[in-house]
């Protein structure tokens, strides 16, 4: 039982990170119907930005309270990745909006290759380890919970609350939902569609940057190719939850996190990714639009 609870906590931590990345996928998909393949690499850029900021802080000051350091890392990473995603949207996706559906998919894959190789070229191909930022571990009745995990779950929860408020209660969120329903009509009614889409990319990138910072803090290491696997997992999570649905992305992220930690704990760690992907395939066979996705009605 303790073991199970332990795995549940690990899964929750992992799932929080996946969920944060998955929101970026699902939002972009919801609003322009495109798989933003570069999103995983945006996450990686966020982690790298946090790493560099951490090193700057370390070089400039002898001791910074860890909370403040994390906060600065997060904020700079959010700003920088937002700029990246904003630029990418403008350069590589916007000119292709409304053309051939596969064209933006290809530029997104191209951008993913560009980003990871850009970081490889500028920062070197090696693993970048940092000393542990937070190392406190609490043990409650045999279940150990590290402060890192608490921070991750807490930050995720706070961000999701803010995010939920933004999407559901503000005029920006309303504009986003309008663009999601019908971009042309939204434009006719005075919604600045380009701006709304840009903001969507920025929001997705900001969440990915937070996920990147948390990832760096949790694992203590990052490398240029780290965007792919979490990216694909998060995308899987978004699809599993029903792409386009925000609660679905979080739910899918948590599910993938749980599947992974449970599978590694009870079966074999080697096949944890196989398990995650297989469950995705099985779920989609029975629920072709994911768990919370709107079922696609065939229009005849």
């Amino acid at each position: 039982m303790q073991y199970f609870v332990q795995q549940l906590i690990n899964g929750l931590t992992l799932g929080s990170i996946y969920g944060l990345i998955a929101i970026g996928y699902t939002m972009v998909y919801g609003i322009i119907g495109m798989i933003n393949f570069a999103h995983g690499d945006i996450f990686m850029v966020g982690a790298f930005a946090a790493l560099i900021v951490f090193l700057i802080l370390g070089a400039m000051f002898y001791s910074v309270p860890i909370v403040i350091a994390l906060l600065i890392m997060m904020i700079v990473a959010m700003l920088l990745t937002s700029l990246y995603n904003w630029t990418i949207e403008k350069v590589a996706y916007r000119p292709l909006r409304g053309s051939f559906r596969l064209a933006p998919l290809i530029t997104a894959i191209g951008m993913s290759i560009v980003l990871s190789n850009f970081v490889q070229v500028t920062q070197g191909p090696r693993n970048k380890p940092i000393p542990p930022l937070v190392s406190k571990v609490y043990t409650i009745e045999g279940v150990s919970v590290s402060l890192k995990q608490i921070i991750i779950v807490l930050v995720t929860a706070i961000l999701l609350a803010i995010f939920w408020y933004l999407v559901n209660k503000t005029s920006l969120g309303r504009a986003q939902r309008a663009c999601e329903q019908d971009r042309k009509m939204a434009a006719l009614l005075g919604v600045d569609v380009d701006r709304t889409i840009s903001i969507t990319f920025i929001m997705g990138a900001a969440l990915a940057a937070v996920a990147g910072t948390l990832f760096l803090m949790y694992y203590g290491v990052v490398v240029f190719s780290d965007g792919f696997v979490p990216g694909v997992k998060a995308f899987t999570a978004a699809v599993l939850g029903g792409i386009g649905s925000l609660p679905g992305a979080v739910l899918g992220g948590l599910l993938i996190g749980f599947i992974e930690s449970m599978w590694s704990a009870y079966f074999s760690i080697d096949y944890k990714d196989v398990a995650a992907f297989s469950i995705l395939a099985i779920v989609l066979i029975f629920l072709p639009s994911g768990i919370l996705g709107r079922p696609e009605v065939e229009k005849v």
Binding site: Y29, I35, V232, F235, T236, V239, I243, S268, D270, Y271, D273, V274, F277, S278, L280, A281, L284, I285, P288, S289, G290, E296
Partner: peptide, 28 residues
């Protein structure tokens, strides 16, 4: 067979997952 009912991007992710499954099985 399993993916026939899926469309568009759902098909894309399942085929991607399938590719990864084959690779991971080969590795493991």
């Amino acid at each position: 067979f399993p993916v026939l009912r899926l469309r568009g991007d759902y098909l894309a992710i399942v085929t991607l997952a399938f590719g990864e499954i084959i690779r991971l099985v080969i590795i493991n």
